[in-house]
Computed example of a mutant assay.
Amino acid sequence: MSSTYRLAIVGTGGIAHLHADELRKHVPGRIELVAAVDPDTARLDAFKDKFGVARGYASIEELLANEELDLVDLCTPPVAHAPGAIAALEAGVGVVCEKPPALSLEEFDRIAAAAAASTADFAVISQHRFGSAAERVRNMTASGVLGRLAVAKCDTLWFRPEEYFAVEWRGRWETEGGGPTMGHGIHQIDTLLSLVGPWSEVVATAHRHRRRTNTEDVSHAIVTLESGASVVITNSLLSPREVSQIRLDFDTATVELDHLYGYGDDDWRIHPIASAADDVQRAWAGEPRGQASGHGAQFKRIADALDGRTTPPVPLEEARRTLELLAAIYASAFTGKRVRAGDIDPTSPFYQRMDGSGAPWPDLK
């Protein structure tokens, strides 16, 4: 039997408006938006008026002291994710957190420790995992109809002009955690790992070509998976024709996804080899179908998990695996060394900060 869960959104910027819209469209009566948090009173009041939110607060601490909640939805800049998550978990309130979940592995592990000590759960928004086509690819991989993966690519080719970085927290290691690898490519990289499984090692480069930021504006990585398959990843904020792409070359077919900020079934294509065409096409024509990726799709899964008293997706270990790969890309790019899964432990500077021992370009003041 479904229940109604009380949720508060923390932060009322653009992504919070998207979340509130998705909650209203996709889980009405299941997840109720009851409060919002923002220290900017004018922005908070505008958000409350737009979405009919009764109560607003200046801080998450004030929120937690005054509301009975099932979930807080963290839509703040990344620098506030870990403090907000830990505060909510210590209060016994579940957390849904936008990406990136933390600025570093050290912060993430503190969130994980708070979740382990709490009666509540922590889940990361990874909305592109939940489209029906991605689920179908995972099912086809598990069934063996695609054979083994050999080669893949994962590109986030976006464009952000200089004025995008006029927002104070953007383009700074201390507040955003990184550039397109951390804040933009994470969407596709996380989706990729949900399709192909764990990674084992990476060799990478990162560059600051054009934007006046302290973080990179482009990165490239060659990743070896535990399965032995190889993946090439590019993350860019300098690409005028914007596209997000995943290509998977299996033994019996190539699977391709081209989209930008979200996909439907029609954004995927499959190209089987002749000898396997009938089996591959039969599986591709099957279920599930009709669910676009997006926050609404994940909010439905979160409500289902709460109804079933199970951990909402995406679990901590999978979110950490994605964040560890991002840290390893930076570590390899800035040290010139191959980095293996597990190498970035608490003794590594890249455990504490994504720029670790320092980017190979001067900070801009």
Rank of each mutant, 00 (worst) to 15 (best):
T76N: 08
L157D: 05
F165R: 03
A102V: 12
P101N: 11
I111H: 07
H81T: 09
P101Y: 13
S118L: 04
D70Q: 09
I111E: 02
Q127Y: 11
F130I: 03
D121Q: 14
T156A: 13
C97M: 04
T156G: 07
R110S: 12
A82H: 08
D155K: 07
E135R: 14
A85R: 08
A85S: 15
N139M: 12
L69D: 02
S132L: 01
R160T: 01
V79N: 06
K153D: 13
F130L: 00
D73T: 08
V151P: 00
G131S: 08
Q127T: 01
H128P: 00
A123H: 04
A142K: 12
G147P: 02
T156S: 14
I86K: 08
V93T: 14
A91C: 06
K153C: 11
A123M: 07
A113P: 00
E106C: 13
C154A: 13
G144S: 09
G144I: 06
P77H: 11
A152S: 15
A152M: 03
S132A: 12
C154W: 02
R148T: 12
E90G: 10
A115P: 01
A133T: 12
R129H: 13
P161T: 08
L71D: 06
S126H: 09
A116V: 00
A87D: 04
T141Q: 10
S143D: 13
G84A: 09
V151Y: 13
V124W: 09
A112M: 01
S126V: 05
L71K: 09
A88Q: 10
V93Q: 05
D109E: 15
T156Q: 08
P161F: 06
I86T: 08
A102K: 11
R138D: 00
A166P: 00
R160A: 10
E107I: 03
A152C: 07
M140R: 08
L71F: 15
A114K: 10
R129G: 01
A85D: 06
P78E: 04
R136N: 02
S126L: 03
F108W: 13
A117K: 14
K153T: 14
A120N: 07
C97P: 04
R138L: 00
E106P: 00
E107N: 13
A82F: 02
A142H: 09
